[in-house]
Amino acid sequence: MGEAEALGATMFERLGGADAIDRLVEAFYHRMDILPEAKGIRAMHGRDLGPVKQVLKRYLSEWTGGPKLYTPEKGHPRLRQRHVRFPIDVAERDAWLLCMRGALEETIEDAAARHEIDESFTKLADWMRNQAENPHDTRGHI
C-alpha cells in the first residue's frame, strides 16, 4: 500500500488533482484524433472537441473524488442513457480503452493509481456497451 493510499487520499489526489485530469483528458482526445483504431469513436463526436473535453474533465474530477463540477451543471451522470444514441460494441469499447490507457500511461505517474483507475475504466467501458456481440449475447441489450 502506497503512502497516499494509507493516508486515505482520494483517487483525484492520487492522480495529481485538476492539472492531472486536464492532462489526461487532453491526451485521451489527442489519441482519439490520431489513432486509426479510434476512427469510429472519433466520428461519434463533433468536429470541435472543446465542449466534450470540458464535460469529461468535470465528470472525471467528481468521479475520482475531486470537486463536484459535473452534477451541479448536468445532474446525475446517467452515462448509458446519455450514450444510448451511439452504438457501443466491443470495438468501440476497446478503442475507448486504447485511448484512455495510452493517456493514463502518458500522464499519471503513480503506477498503483493508474492500475486502479484502469480497472474502473475497464468496468465502466464494458458496462457502456449497448450492442450485443452475437445473437446469444443479451448483455448489450438495453
Rank of each mutant, 00 (worst) to 15 (best):
Gly65Trp: 04
Arg139Tyr: 12
Leu79Tyr: 04
Tyr29Asp: 00
Gly16Tyr: 01
Ile142Arg: 14
Glu37Thr: 14
Leu56Asp: 00
Arg139Glu: 08
Leu79Asn: 03
Leu98Met: 08
Pro36Lys: 14
Gly2Leu: 10
His30Ser: 13
Ile142Asp: 04
Pro135Met: 10
Gly40Met: 12
His136Trp: 12
His115Asp: 13
Ala6Val: 05
Asp19Gly: 09
Glu26Ile: 07
Asp94Ile: 06
Gln131Gly: 03
Arg139Lys: 12
Trp127Glu: 08
Leu124Asp: 00
Gln131Val: 15
Arg82Gly: 08
Arg139Cys: 06
Ile41Trp: 01
Asp33His: 15
Leu124Asn: 01
Pro51Trp: 15
His30Glu: 11
Ala9Glu: 05
Ala112Phe: 10
Gln81Thr: 14
Tyr29Val: 05
Leu49Glu: 05
Ala6Ser: 10
Met1Tyr: 11
Ser61Ile: 03
Glu5Met: 12
Arg80Leu: 08
His115Gln: 14
Val84Asn: 08
Ala91Val: 14
Gln131Ser: 05
Ala18Pro: 00
Arg139Phe: 12
Glu116Asp: 15
His136Tyr: 11
Pro72Thr: 12
Arg14Thr: 01
Asp94Thr: 10
Ala18Ser: 09
Asp33Tyr: 09
Ala132Asn: 11
Pro87Ser: 09
Thr64Asn: 02
Arg82Ile: 10
Gly8His: 05
Gly46Met: 09
Lys123Gln: 10
Val52Glu: 04
Met44Ile: 09
His115Val: 15
Glu73Asn: 12
Pro51Gly: 14
His115Phe: 07
Phe28Cys: 02
Asn130Thr: 12
Arg101Cys: 02
Asp137Leu: 09
Ala43Glu: 14
Asp118Val: 07
Arg31Met: 08
Ala103Met: 02
Leu60Tyr: 00
Met32Leu: 15
Arg80Trp: 11
Gln81Val: 15
Gly140Ala: 04
Met1Thr: 14
His83Ala: 06
Gly66Met: 11
Val90Met: 09
Leu35Glu: 10
Val55Ala: 09
Glu106Val: 01
Glu5Val: 03
Lys57Met: 08
Asp110Val: 03
Arg114Met: 02
Lys74Gln: 13
Gly66Trp: 05
Lys74Arg: 15
Glu5Gly: 04
Ile88Ser: 02
Gln131His: 12
Ile117Gln: 00
Glu26Met: 07
Gln131Cys: 10
Arg101Lys: 09
Arg80Phe: 09
Pro36Gln: 13
Arg47Tyr: 15
Leu35Ala: 10
Arg47Val: 13
Asn130Cys: 07
Val84Met: 14
Ala18Phe: 05
Leu79Cys: 07
Phe86Cys: 04
